[in-house]
């Protein structure tokens, strides 16, 4: 069934800073299947953007990647590519919608031209035709009166309009892998829905694959086939979207699902995960989440948990899944989710 277009194997990314080496990505492996949407969720600073920027060959100058890290795309290790070779892949076969729209737009170039440029470069389209397609894409991402705005500069647009421009640029290339880093966070929900639908329909047409990074678990629920949860430079749990939402196993995933307000959260405060994330200059021994985890076991501070198998598609790196561990009762909200899981399983059986 699985048909990976991309294999990430043992990825490590370190950043050299004055204060020392920041170990931003600490052994991340995952597959991306053709035609699927993989959502990456997790703590702010856990390495989602660094992972995906690495896939675009766009890491900061102070980044270093050890030799045993491999990113296999079309039988090549992307990490071996020279900058000229990247030129034909980046923005073409693999395109990315960046988290910070203002930094990926050129403030001195008209927005219409910025969308048309990759079409002229990679598809060898004539300027006229490229601009026509640019206009279609501007309409597609919901820029009202697009004709009037095609010659605008980025500063004339609102935050959300700029973000839509960035989406249009990435979609213009018709990439095989689309990486979307928080593509809709600056958008109101109606336009968000419009853009997500556009992404979905383009994906259906071209069976492209999407890596979708977002903090909005509602968006994850609607877009993703599979979900990977990151914490402190590692993937701590991955599974199908139903497995992560209804049968979560890692205490960090529990905390994440528990932090959301629901419409019946009225009084009192939200359930934030206590404490702060570990310092990646000097990551703790054992399970990096242990110090914030009320379910932590003694072994967590000594030895890093391996991935335990929950199902063929679902794995979690927590000692709680070891058969020798005591059975714990998760938070009430999670128990409710597990009950839903039983129901869903029952319906399917």
């Amino acid at each position: 069934m699985s048909n990976p277009i991309l294999k990430v194997e043992n990825l490590h990314v370190n950043f050299n800073t004055y204060a020392g080496t920041v170990q931003a990505i600490r052994d991340v492996s995952f597959d991306l299947n053709k035609g699927e949407t993989l959502a990456i969720v997790g703590e702010s600073g856990s390495g989602k953007s660094v992972t995906t920027k690495t896939l675009m060959g766009l890491n900061a100058k102070n980044a270093s990647i050890p030799d045993n890290s491999r990113l296999i795309f079309k039988d090549r290790n992307l990490l071996d590519l020279k900058e000229e070779e990247w030129q034909t892949i980046r923005g073409n076969e693999i395109a990315m919608i960046f988290q910070d729209p203002m930094t990926s737009l050129d403030p001195t170039m008209k927005i219409g031209m910025q969308i048309a440029e990759p079409l002229m470069k990679h598809r060898k389209m004539k300027k006229e035709d490229a601009l026509k397609r640019a206009l279609e894409l501007m309409k597609g991402v919901g820029i009202p009166n697009s004709e009037e705005h095609i010659n605008d500069y980025p500063h004339q647009w609102s935050g959300g309009m700029r973000q839509r421009a960035v989406v249009a640029i990435a979609l213009a290339a018709d990439p095989e892998i689309l990486i979307a880093d928080e593509p809709t966070t600056a958008l109101d929900v109606t336009i968000q829905a419009q853009i997500l639908n556009l992404m979905k329909s383009l994906q259906k047409e071209t069976s492209s694959s999407i890596i979708f990074i977002t903090h909005d678990l509602g968006v994850v629920a609607g877009m993703a086939n599979r979900v990977a949860v990151m914490y402190a430079g590692k993937i701590v749990e991955y599974g199908t979207v139903d497995e992560i939402f209804f049968n979560p196993q890692h205490p960090y995933t529990w905390g994440l699902l528990n932090s959301m307000p629901t419409t019946d959260t009225q009084i009192g405060s939200l359930e934030a995960i206590p404490g702060t994330p570990p310092d990646l200059l000097d990551p703790p021994k054992g399970d990096a989440f242990a110090s914030r985890n009320v379910y932590a076991l003694a072994i967590d501070s000594k030895e890093e948990p391996p991935f335990f198998k929950v199902s063929d598609t679902h794995y979690a790196a927590t000692w709680l899944l070891d058969e020798r561990s005591p059975k714990v009762t998760p938070p009430v909200q999670i128990q409710k989710r597990w009950a839903r899981w039983q129901e869903i399983q029952g319906q399917e059986a």
Partner: peptide, 20 residues
Amino acid sequence: DEPISALDVSIQAQVVNLMK
């Protein structure tokens, strides 16, 4: 102005609790 949209939900909760 959109103070929390770039934050993960747990930190959103922290910031929102802090604001309150």
